[in-house]
Simulated scan of single mutants.
Amino acid sequence: MMNIQEIDSDKLEMAASMLKAIAHPVRIAILKHLEGGKKLTVTEIHELLGIEQSTTSHHLGILKDKGVLCSRREGKNTYYYLKHDILSQIVDCLQRCTCEE
């Protein structure tokens, strides 16, 4: 097993930044909706979550800025998706860790 001193400090900072970005209930819900390679627009996400479109855009911006999400413009729509599919495993892990027994 690799010890913490063997990991590049820049990579640790990036990982911490990504985890901080994810650490919000709305953002966790966004990631959950983007699992499995799904690509959704701001409108689709705000309708799924039942929150304001401006709030959705704000959270998507944070996730994109911190390297959690990517976006691709197609015509009038911008589609958001997980930058790394493996990020959905973090959400799955959190769900398992918060289940009541």
Rank of each mutant, 00 (worst) to 15 (best):
D85Y: 10
Q95P: 01
I90N: 00
I28W: 02
A15E: 05
L60Q: 04
E101H: 14
K83P: 06
I22C: 00
L94G: 00
D92M: 08
I30D: 04
V26R: 15
A21K: 00
K20R: 15
I90Y: 04
Y81G: 06
R96G: 01
I30V: 02
G67W: 05
Q89D: 13
A16L: 15
I51L: 11
E44Q: 07
G61K: 13
V91E: 01
T98F: 05
E44C: 01
V26Q: 15
K76N: 04
A21M: 00
T78D: 08
A15L: 13
D85Q: 15
T78I: 08
T98L: 11
V91W: 01
Q89I: 10
S17A: 11
T43H: 10
S88Q: 11
H24E: 04
M2C: 09
H24A: 02
R72W: 11
S9G: 08
R72V: 15
T41G: 03
T41V: 02
I62G: 01
E47L: 09
S57L: 14
L69S: 07
K38R: 14
T98N: 06
Q95E: 10
I28A: 04
D92W: 06
M18F: 01
M1W: 07
D8K: 13
T55C: 06
K20E: 15
L34R: 02
V68K: 02
C97T: 14
D8I: 10
E101R: 14
A15H: 08
I62E: 05
H24N: 02
D10E: 14
M1E: 07
Q53M: 10
C93P: 02
H33P: 04
M14K: 14
L63T: 00
L82H: 05
D65Q: 15
L87I: 11
L31V: 02
A16D: 12
K66G: 01
S71H: 12
K20G: 09
K83N: 13
L40Y: 05
K66F: 07
A16W: 08
C70D: 13
Q53T: 09
E52S: 05
K76M: 03
V26G: 13
Y79W: 15
L48N: 09
A16F: 14
L31G: 02
L63G: 02
I28D: 03
L63K: 01
I45G: 01
K83L: 11
A29E: 04
N3P: 06
G37Q: 07
K38L: 10
L60K: 08
S71W: 14
L31I: 07
H58S: 14
R96E: 10
L31A: 00
H46S: 14
Q89S: 12
M14P: 03
E101I: 13
G50Y: 07
E13P: 00
